[in-house]
Computed example of a mutant assay.
Amino acid sequence: MSSGPAGQFARSSVRPITRVQQSATLRTRDGVLIDALYEPGPDPDTDLVIVVAHGFTGDLDRPHVRRAAGVFAKAAAVITFSFRGHGASGGLSTVGDREVLDLAAAVEWARSIGHAHVVTVGFSMGGSVVLRHAALAGAAHGGRTEARVDGVVAVSAPARWFYRGTAPMRRLHWVVTRPAGRVVGRWGLRTRIHPHEWDPVPLSPVESVPLIAPTPLLIVHGDRDPYFPVDHPRMLAAAARGGAELWIEEGMGHAENAADDGLLGRIAEWATASWTSATAEGPASAEGEELPW
């Protein structure tokens, strides 16, 4: 697999002399081209980068994604990207399944730039993706892969698949599963959706969580989330068996649209703290390792 600008990058243990804002086209393991953007943050020498995984129907150019990236960039370098089927990326959205490959490409790019510590922050669908990605990358070879992560934040993530318990989720299922809904998705929501069902059904978020430890995990959810009620984050936290922090945010709705700058700033502080802890323990080497997918 190759990823990075124009689909390629050269792996090196030497940190680049300078880091500057740059856009890139990343190529996933299954050959999908992913639109990505790197912003160096306030300290060009920092080892920490935050990789942002947006929600369904988002992309790296959406105002709320750019706002979140701007807040995070006050604390660390930031990578934003558009999932497959979204924005300028290629392919079709699989609504959380193959998207783990998109995130893996972004994380690998971060390490190719020279960042030793990577924290992923995912919103809604992106929240389910960062959980499953961390579980899969951590389970392979003791987590010693180029796509491993050093901290995970899931914001407004579902605990289980196929949830239809709220009106917004029933509407979303119509968009994803019906031909007319996918037309609405393409032209009304700017999201190109794969027409086939999952086969096999991917590991669920609640099944993924126990596989993430000892990587630090933060679960954030609003108590007024119209998509997923608070039993979802509580299920995720319980599955972590004490290995996760849980923040239930009073008055907050759903995902990046509802996350105010104060909350985003606290998430960035948590990411920085997890990086500081990882630095004290020493970085793990990923040389020669391969992803499990």
Rank of each mutant, 00 (worst) to 15 (best):
T120K: 03
V206H: 12
Y163K: 05
L211M: 13
W275M: 09
T272I: 07
L291C: 08
A240E: 01
T276Y: 04
V155C: 04
H254N: 00
V100F: 09
T80N: 05
T191S: 12
V121K: 02
R144N: 06
T166S: 14
S89F: 04
E197D: 14
A159F: 10
L211F: 05
A24Y: 01
T215Y: 02
Y163I: 03
G90C: 07
V121D: 02
P202N: 05
T177Q: 12
L60S: 06
H194Y: 13
R15V: 15
L92W: 06
D231E: 15
R186C: 11
V130C: 09
R186W: 12
E245D: 13
L26Q: 00
L189C: 08
R144G: 03
A53E: 14
E256F: 02
G7M: 01
H54P: 00
G55R: 10
I193F: 07
G31A: 11
P210L: 11
W198L: 08
L263A: 04
R192V: 13
D199T: 12
D199A: 09
R171M: 13
G185M: 14
P42A: 15
P205L: 10
V118Q: 01
A88V: 03
H115T: 00
T94W: 07
T46S: 15
H64K: 08
R170Q: 15
G143L: 10
V220G: 10
V52Q: 10
H254S: 03
A69D: 02
D59I: 13
R192E: 08
L172C: 12
G243Y: 04
S3H: 14
F72M: 13
E281A: 15
P233Q: 15
A278P: 00
G151C: 12
G242N: 06
V32F: 11
M125F: 02
K74M: 11
E281H: 10
T25M: 14
P63L: 09
I79Q: 00
T191M: 09
